[in-house]
């Protein structure tokens, strides 16, 4: 068994990433900036097709000044956090239940498989008919998309726990509840982490799509109405915001959390 080193601090990690990629990123950003500017200078009607980076920056200042950007951003983030948290809170116990009881698992596995292949975006029109273009609709779609990845991951996590751990706990007189709490839950921890990241990723896509389709204020709505109003600078600004937010969320929050969880709870034994 490998010796576990103390997990590096967040500051150290960011520092190392900066050292490693900073130079490349600077070059890359400058290159993209130049190419983007040249294309936008060469085409006709750049305001419509590809506004220059400066125009996008100006529009961001404008939107910040009006207070729209923070409010849209906040709306989207709140939806994501709210929806994915409840999705995870429902999915994890359900996955555990499926993992514990083979009969329940055999019963629900096929139908979960079916619903997982019905993507959240595809059931969107149905929910719109039910609840109209409301926050409830977006919320339902987020919940739906976040639920299945985590449930499946927890299920496979529980299944992968060596049976001898459960037997050992039982031999020592552990109750059913203790086995769940002390063996199954910690044992499934790495899968829970991976599943959470997947679920939140899917939920993020669902939020953006939901806002576009349901027309509720947020980043998705911002890029959608920007296109309607011929305000391409706003569209590009929204896209950049969406991309940057997800990179920050994924690379600096979820992935390190996943890695730490796997390191702490992983059952890697040779």
């Amino acid at each position: 068994m490998q010796q576990r080193n103390d997990a590096p601090s967040l500051g150290w990690r960011i520092n190392k990433l900066l050292q490693l990629d900073a130079m490349n990123l600077v070059i890359l950003v400058i290159a993209v900036y130049i190419i983007w500017s040249v294309i936008s200078a060469l085409i006709d009607n750049p305001a419509r097709y590809l506004p220059s980076p400066i125009a996008v920056a100006v529009s961001s200042v404008d939107m910040l000044y009006k207070g729209l950007l923070p409010s849209y951003f906040g709306d989207t983030l709140v939806r994501l956090i709210f929806g994915s948290t409840i999705g995870l809170l429902l999915g994890i116990p359900f996955g555990l239940l499926l993992g514990i009881n083979r009969t329940v698992a055999d019963m629900f596995h096929p139908i979960m498989n079916f619903f997982q292949s019905v993507s959240g975006i595809a059931i969107f029109p149905i929910i719109v008919v039910w609840w109209g273009n409301s926050d409830k609709t977006i919320f339902a779609v987020i919940l739906y998309t976040a639920f299945f990845p985590i449930a499946f991951n927890v299920l496979s996590g529980v299944r992968e726990i060596p049976i001898r751990y459960i037997s050992a706990a039982r031999t020592l007189g552990a109750s059913r509840y203790q086995i769940i709490k002390d063996v199954l839950f910690p044992g499934a921890m790495p899968h829970i982490a991976t599943g959470s990241r997947l679920s939140i990723g899917f939920a993020w896509r669902a939020v953006i799509a939901g806002e576009m389709l349901a027309g509720r204020q947020g980043l998705g709505w911002m890029i959608f109405t920007g296109q309607d109003a011929d305000n391409t600078a706003e569209v590009i600004l929204g896209m950049v915001m969406i991309g940057v937010t997800w990179i920050i969320l994924d690379h600096y929050l979820l992935r390190p959390m996943e890695a730490d969880t796997i390191e702490r709870w992983g059952l890697v034994q040779r």
Partner: peptide, 12 residues
């Protein structure tokens, strides 16, 4: 590009 996710490209 992956972070922007296909859907966000639709308006553009």
């Amino acid at each position: 590009a992956n972070s922007i996710s296909g859907i966000a490209w639709i308006p553009l």
